[in-house]
Design a protein around this nucleic acid. Structure first.
Lengths: 116, 116
DNA sequence: TCTATATTTCAATAATCTATGAAATATGGA
DNA sequence: TCCATATTTCATAGATTATTGAAATATAGA
């Protein structure tokens, strides 16, 4: 990931409402959520939510698809992974002092994965 | 790490100049760098740099200490690690799809560490 | 003490971001 | 076609952030 894309990702997540939306979409998983449901769930006006989702989409952190009258938003895990990779490698030079706390990540031991 | 601290960390890094400064300080390591050296190296006015460093310091990502006439800034690796931990665990729920790309982090295999 | 260096603080401007009402677009169903 | 629902787009006002010149503070050394 290039610096410019990383900056857009960081900026997108660097706001309370958008961070909450992204976390919600991560929890929702691959099925995603309709824009209206997200707005209701976070008690946000529809047009405000639309703007927030647009920023996340422009950063590549979520993707949108239409389903009938609704537009479903889905977190882009690959992109988020790339952002984290940028932060650990490109930004932090892979220094163990920084990376160490992340070893608790389940991806480390995919064999024993339990239901989260 | 709490959401509020994570937001401050994300905001601090979500700007070209500050991200560059933080990367520079990570590379500089525990010895850190004087504010003036950072400003010269990044071709930034001293007062602008001072403001950027203040934002990073308020986010806890760098620490400052005086050394004679200079003020030395040092990246806080622990804090950056905590931010990454927040993003992987609290924010992303430790989903392997997101964490996977980070397995290349050297901390995973400290035994064979080579000079970077 | 006086001067030079290093950095910060202050005040003001410029730029960017966020939220909102109102209107527009797209879809599905009667 | 007409209407209701779902979402976005537009214009704008308010808030926040970034940069800069000028002044202030802190330190070191003559």
């Amino acid at each position: 990931m290039e610096t410019d894309a990383a900056l857009r990702g960081l900026s997108a997540l660097a706001q309370e409402g958008r961070l909450a939306v992204f976390r919600l979409l991560v929890k929702a998983g691959p099925d995603g959520m309709a824009a209206g449901d997200i707005a209701r769930r976070t008690k946000t006006a529809a047009n405000t939510m639309s703007a927030q989702l647009l920023v996340l989409a422009n950063a590549g952190l979520v993707r949108a698809r239409r389903d009938g009258r609704s537009i479903i938003y889905v977190a882009d895990f690959g992109r988020m992974g790339a952002l984290l990779e940028f932060l650990t490698k490109d930004c932090c030079g892979g220094r163990p002092e920084i990376c160490a706390p992340m070893l608790a990540c389940p991806a480390k031991k995919p064999r024993k994965a339990r239901a989260a």
